[in-house]
């Protein structure tokens, strides 16, 4: 009576139950597995588990079960390490993108007179958990990204860019590497905003940021410093190299024309260039030096590149 009840319940469980002997032959399984594997009893009972489920990693599986037999203790296999062991269908084929059921498997020793004669494998459907965890991870990644990016221009935001500079600065000092910094300001941007409206101004910022980004190398760090001010960190770059990059950026911006409401907007930029100096103790010193060069470029008539070294010698 109780046996019948147990079989009845085991066939209604939403957990797979599979029992094998020590030679990996299947002794029993419940309805959950029958349904999700879509195989009939007579092709399963008495057959080797490796024949019924050829997808199982045989060597791994044998070693796993040997720990259960020898140590007489249960063993686990979770979806986070192996998405699934058995290729089974699952209960959310429509609303998730999982092809097979994500599984948590438990291997239980079944002892007969002190020896492990059989192993009971419990298979839980965790496709749901797996799906939501993946969604969460994706959301966290997006959040981490949006925390670093300036929404308008897609360059790094000020906070993240400055953290990058602090890191690059201390690295360059420690290893005595070169480090250059460009500070870039769009010329007469306020006038441009007044003429074309803020949406026109925004478009100029977006298009200019795109232009600059295209000219940079891997490892260069590009950020929006303020309203119409951009900044670029150039690791392992000397003054000459930095000037070259700055000049290329200046020319590219000056040549660029932006279509806005059937009007053509063109814009120029002034750029200050500084490199790390043995007198610089803080990364803010590097910013100040580049800033001074930028003012110099503005004062000398805009649309030009000035080097901090020249400022110092004046």
């Amino acid at each position: 009576m109780l046996d019948e009840l147990c079989i009845n319940i085991s066939n209604r469980l939403n957990t797979g139950i599979l029992i094998v002997d020590r030679h990996y032959n299947i002794i029993m399984w419940n309805r959950f597995l029958e349904v999700h594997a879509n195989k009939s009893d007579n092709k399963v009972i008495g057959k080797s588990i490796f024949t019924v489920f050829p997808e199982l990693p045989k060597k791994w599986f044998e070693r796993k079960l040997s720990s259960v037999v020898q140590l007489k203790t249960q063993s686990f296999c979770g979806w986070e390490q192996r998405h699934h062991l058995f290729e089974l269908s699952h209960s959310r084929p429509i609303t998730t993108d999982s092809h097979f059921m994500a599984q948590n498997c438990t291997f239980l020793p079944v002892e007969v007179e002190g020896e492990v004669e059989r192993i009971c494998i419990l298979i839980e459907d965790v496709t749901d958990v797996c799906h939501y965890q993946s969604q969460l991870n994706k959301a966290l990644q997006e959040l981490a990204l949006s925390n670093r990016i300036d929404g308008l221009t897609q360059a790094f935001n000020r906070k993240h860019w400055e953290e990058c500079l602090a890191k690059e600065f201390s690295r360059a000092r420690r290893y005595k590497h070169d480090l250059a910094l460009l500070m870039l300001d769009l010329d007469h941007f306020k006038l441009l905003n007044d003429t074309f409206g803020h949406q026109g101004g925004d478009l100029v910022l977006i298009e200019t940021a795109k232009k600059i980004d295209k000219l940079l190398r891997m490892g260069d760090l590009f950020g929006r410093y303020g309203g119409e001010e951009f900044a670029v960190i150039l690791p392992n770059t000397d003054l000459e190299g930095a000037e070259e990059v700055a000049e290329r950026i200046r020319q590219s911006i000056a040549k660029n024309t932006i279509d806005y409401n059937q009007k053509i907007i063109s814009v120029t930029a002034s750029i200050g260039v500084a490199i790390i100096d043995s007198n610089d103790t803080r990364y803010e010193d590097l910013i100040s030096n580049a800033d001074l060069a930028l003012y110099q470029a503005k004062a000398a008539g805009r649309n030009r590149v000035c080097l901090a070294k020249e400022v110092a010698t004046i």
């Binding site: 720990s67 986070e80 390490q81």
Partner: peptide
């Protein structure tokens, strides 16, 4: 190549 590092330490911990 059979196991990731995570799986190895989880397996050993359980044992």
């Amino acid at each position: 190549g059979e196991m990731t590092f995570d799986e190895q330490i989880i397996d050993l911990s359980s044992i």
